[in-house]
Write a protein that binds this DNA or RNA. Structure first.
Lengths: 334, 334
DNA sequence: GGGAAATGCGTAAGCGTTTACAAAGGAGAT
DNA sequence: ATCTCCTTTGTAAACGCTTACGCATTTCCC
């Protein structure tokens, strides 16, 4: 069932059918209705490949997501998809996985599908070694790229991010101001924003003349973070004799794990142990007491990813980098 | 940068380039290397549309997801994507939204993109009114469909689901067996599995000769479930004088909301109020006490969605319907 | 060394659309 | 009736790839 079948049954040429398909106004109302009727009756679906070959734009945005089962990223994905759709763009998702080559492959795959632009979700996409970013530079040559939560200085790459460094700094200072002395910093990713957060923690300590103690900085290395694993990890640190009166984390779920640790270690929250999460997801409200967390304004960030992309695609000027402030949402855990 | 450019620079014909692209063995090793070198050097990406036109299969599966920000569905999405990718298939995601027409549009969109098959995630896809399922029947004519968590009897539609009815029945019976008299049933979706769960609740009561009390069955209607909203909803029921000593829910997050309600209503869990969630997500472990929940074996279900799809696509016979048992995971909330 | 089979490669015909260009038809002005 | 102009429609050439078919070259076996 292709355009020829329809044109034949409707008694017109394929050009006319195509025009109806694309909403051209160079078709008489009568013809349009006739063609539409045939299409409906035959439940005709135009072939997207053939269209893609002819059209310059397929009104499609590629979404790169290192891990859709990550609640934060899934949320972002949902925001982006919805807003792009509301603006007439379809989204192509590629859940690449985190390994460099997987991401590079994901980007290429989307390029081959002729997306009009791509949003790279999560700072995983910017590598430490400049040589490893070649895939980014390549992609940027072909379509505009928007980086969510990461920064990379290049034409045709637009960055929308939260100032994770200062947000983490504020959270650390808040803990210090409320009398905490030994703040354990527990983080997961070593990516762009992961580093910024760690910087914020260190800067805050330095600004108060407190030495950074390496034994208080821990990278939870497991690929999947589960509450019991995090709990056990902290229990282990405790048994090793590492002393801390606060836990600052780079992800809410790490904070939840810390709360669980507190319970089995018989430490009261917040009197005996303060906890701060990051991202301000549902998790925070599940805990008892509820978790203080840094809200990094995901919805705002996503909104500006979309609007930036739309601006660039319509030829307008757009800021190459937009930075928003995070906000410390104080709850019972501090 | 297309296949002609590459063929020219490599000094071969486009047919040879194409053969290299498709891994044909009718190319000498020397030529292959030369072509590959040029491709790499030019960072050539074949045009997927043109390929799609020529090829019969693009090795692509369409994933339909009513809402990617739903933790359960996002998890499913991630499982499916990973396993399809491991088997050489790309995934196209369409987050349709829940409205019938949006879903129908999503299905058509994917059909037009010539997916080899589609997985419809979440029982939202089967409508009550048979007439409204026409889009399903249409799609099934063109490609194999796999329904996750729903059942629809039709050739070329394969169903993989958990026996939510009996799982809910078991949960209800467990509550009754531990002495609960008035079990509030709180649910969210009125879709296929939503109904099955409700049936399970009612059946359990009937099997013990206990009358079903309509005032104990509540549909939390808000599109987005947030912990505070659920908490307030239960508080409202409480104020209306509705008495219950257990809350059985169709989603974990409803259970979390119930736990929050218990706290502000000064009801002890589980002595004064038992709570059971559904899906056994991370949330359950965040609560204090931890939430008893029905594990509906999502990973298993997803695995069989993929293997069913792969079987069908390779022409093998596959069961039209696979039903797995849920499992009640007992924790501190009961 | 001759013929058959295998190998390596090129030519050209699709695949189902879009769209520039041309043509046809009708309305209005003269 | 003729001419112009506008609207509506059709024709045919892309778009970038796959692949059947055919030709040339090499390999193999008696």
């Amino acid at each position: 069932m292709n355009i020829y079948d329809i044109s034949e049954k409707a008694g017109v040429s394929i050009a006319t059918v195509s025009r109806v398909l694309n909403g051209s106004d160079r078709v008489s109302e009568k013809t349009r209705q006739k063609v539409l009727a045939v299409m409906r009756q035959q439940s005709y679906v135009p072939n997207a490949f053939a269209r893609g070959l002819g059209l310059k734009s397929m009104k499609t945005i590629g979404l790169l997501c290192p891990d859709a089962s990550d609640v934060y990223l899934a949320q972002a994905l949902s925001y982006l998809e919805r807003e792009f759709r509301e603006n007439g763009y379809d989204c192509l998702l590629s859940c690449t996985g985190k390994a460099l080559e997987d991401r590079a492959k994901g980007v290429e795959l989307l390029l081959g599908k002729h997306v009009d632009g791509m949003v790279l979700m999560g700072s995983t996409f910017v590598e430490e070694k400049e040589a490893d970013n070649e895939y980014l530079r390549n992609a940027a040559k072909q379509v505009p790229l928007v980086l969510l939560n990461a920064s990379y200085p290049l034409d045709n790459i637009y960055c929308v991010l939260c100032d994770d460094m200062h947000a983490t700094m504020d959270a650390t200072l808040f803990l210090l101001d409320t009398g905490r002395k030994n703040i354990l910093y527990l983080y997961h990713n070593r990516n762009y924003s992961g580093k910024k957060k760690l910087d914020g923690y260190c800067e805050a300590l330095k600004s108060r003349g407190i030495p950074v103690q390496p034994e208080l900085i821990h990278n939870f290395q497991k690929d999947k973070m589960s509450v019991p694993d995090v709990r056990d990890y902290l229990m282990m640190l405790d048994k090793q004799g590492i002393r801390f009166d606060a836990v600052l984390t780079s992800e809410d779920i790490l904070g939840v794990g810390a709360a669980k640790y507190a319970r089995i270690a018989h430490r009261n929250i917040p009197e005996n142990l303060a906890i701060i999460g990051y991202n301000n997801l549902h998790f925070c409200l599940c805990c008892e007491p509820e978790l203080t967390s840094v809200d990094n304004k995901l919805e705002t960030l996503c909104h500006h990813c979309v609007s930036t992309m739309l601006s660039v695609l319509s030829g307008e000027e757009a800021p190459r980098k937009m930075v928003f402030s995070g906000e410390l949402v104080k709850r019972g855990s501090t």
